[in-house]
């Protein structure tokens, strides 16, 4: 990225390097959110609807894991994915795939924990009605997940926010490779270390604006579809 330009000029000129970085950031974070949702939502719903010994321990653990330190997750995955690690043969260290995996691990607890809380609350409201309609276990899960969709969108956004803002884990498992695994956040870190503080700050502002725009879009979609379907 040309150092002599400031961030505003970069946006206005549609600098291809910057565009690629933004696309990678969004792509990785969105993929991670989708993966984490595909796993975390059924998991959270399952935890909300089942009772077994040790369940409360699991709930506390899940809630606590929302605060997993990204650097620790990054390091653990680095050791797993390294050529010398148990999953080394897949060769995904220092690739966007590794970054997706890292972010998925980070946001899975957020999505699962928030889903569990949402579904558990909705279940107290729906229990009698669904029991009276003789809805089975799988039907309960899918019905509650669907009917909680507007609340769950917030869980997804929370996950996306954490993924997009995260730097520690993607730096370690992605390697911050120029044009390949360099994201918004790792670029900000890099430009800071080069002493290029105005550019770093500008990139940070872009990141915030993008996250804001996505949240606004999600909110708008939510309001619109809520009007249509209740």
């Amino acid at each position: 990225m040309p150092d002599h330009l400031n961030a505003l000029q970069l946006i206005l000129s549609g600098d291809p390097t910057l565009v690629a970085i933004v696309r990678l950031s969004l792509g990785v974070s969105l993929a991670a959110v989708l993966l984490a949702a595909a796993i975390g939502m059924p998991l959270g719903a399952l935890l909300a609807l089942t009772r077994f010994p040790g369940r409360s321990v699991l709930v506390v653990l899940l809630n606590a894991m929302m605060g997993l330190p990204p650097v620790v997750v990054g390091l653990a995955l680095y050791l797993l994915l390294s050529r010398s690690g148990p999953l080394g043969e897949f060769g995904i260290l220092f690739t966007p795939t590794a970054m997706v995996v890292a972010q998925t691990v980070l946001i899975l607890p957020i999505i699962a924990a928030l889903t569990r809380q949402t579904i558990e609350d909705l279940w107290t409201e729906y229990r009698d009605e669904l029991s009276a309609m003789n809805v089975g276990a799988v039907g309960r899960m899918t019905t509650l997940l669907w009917d909680a969709r507007f609340s769950l969108l917030t869980a997804l956004l929370a996950g996306f926010g954490r993924a997009a803002a995260e730097v520690g884990a993607v730096m370690i498992v992605g390697g911050n490779i120029d044009g390949f695994t360099r994201t918004m956040t790792t670029t900000v870190a890099l430009e800071t270390s080069k002493g290029n503080l105005p550019l770093a700050m500008g990139l940070g502002a872009i990141l915030i604006v993008i996250v804001l725009a996505i949240n606004a879009a999600a909110w708008g979609t939510r309001a619109w579809s809520q009007r249509l379907t209740g």
Binding site: E129, A132, D147, R149, T229, G230
Partner: peptide, 12 residues
């Protein structure tokens, strides 16, 4: 069963 306060599913 029809409840005193039925729960409406969040759909049409």
């Amino acid at each position: 069963f029809v409840f005193q306060r039925p729960v409406m599913l969040r759909r049409t």
